[in-house]
Amino acid sequence: MLRNPLGLSYAVVALLAAIAVTDVFLFFSALHVWLLMAGRTDAAGFTHLGIDVTSVAGGLVGLACQVVFIIWFFRVRRNAQVFAPDLHRGGPGWAIGAWFVPIAHFWWPRSVAVGTWRASRRDPYGDGKGDGESFAVLNWWWALFILTALFGSFAGAVYEDADTVEEFTAGAGFLMGAAVVDIVAAVLAILFVRRLTSMQHAKATGMIPAAQ
């Protein structure tokens, strides 16, 4: 049975936008630390509070986004099963489970997304070229998702382990870079969610005949 993913997509998009906002605050908090450590302003009263607060806020928003995104992802995967059941490896449950398999979570959810995207196109068995349904958005989203996960962890570790002025300067610089990458990843995720939801909505409402 098809279920409308529009409502969930709005929630996912709102949370992704909130992540981008916390990243903006993180960027400027890290910039403040970088300027202090570089001696460009008075370093008296140096504090990690700005970075700590934005990191906690970002973590909470990120956790909420992960939960709602996975629920949305499961719903669009189940819809894809109706559109073209022969285009998938494994059942819809892997739209949830694939995220929690060690190591494999670096590529398995993308495989689920590819099958879902293909099944949601006008012609599930065509090449999808020239009609706005190519895998470009999906591939860029996934590439930035992996990059921000790895680079964000690295930047956080460098900053947390810093003891000297040079190390704090480097750590703050890495945090600024990680924030920028995460903002780009959030924008691409929004495009991915909106596009896939639109494809499914169009197909399910009869604007484009679903595959039988």
Rank of each mutant, 00 (worst) to 15 (best):
W140V: 15
L138I: 03
D161Y: 12
A179C: 02
T164F: 05
V137H: 01
L150E: 02
T169S: 15
F154M: 13
E133H: 10
D182P: 00
S134H: 03
V180I: 15
E133D: 12
T148Q: 15
F145E: 09
G173M: 11
G152Q: 08
G130M: 08
L150R: 03
G171N: 03
Y125K: 02
A179L: 03
T164L: 05
G156V: 12
G156E: 11
P124Y: 07
F135L: 15
T164A: 07
A155T: 06
I183N: 03
G177H: 03
V180R: 06
D161V: 12
V184K: 02
E160Q: 13
L144Y: 07
A178F: 05
G126T: 05
V180W: 04
Y125H: 10
F145D: 11
D127R: 08
A143G: 09
G128Y: 08
G132Y: 11
E166K: 04
A178I: 07
A155K: 06
W142C: 03
T169D: 13
D161L: 15
V181Y: 01
L147A: 15
D161M: 15
E167W: 01
D182W: 08
A178N: 07
L175H: 02
F145Q: 09
A136S: 11
G132F: 10
W142P: 02
W141D: 05
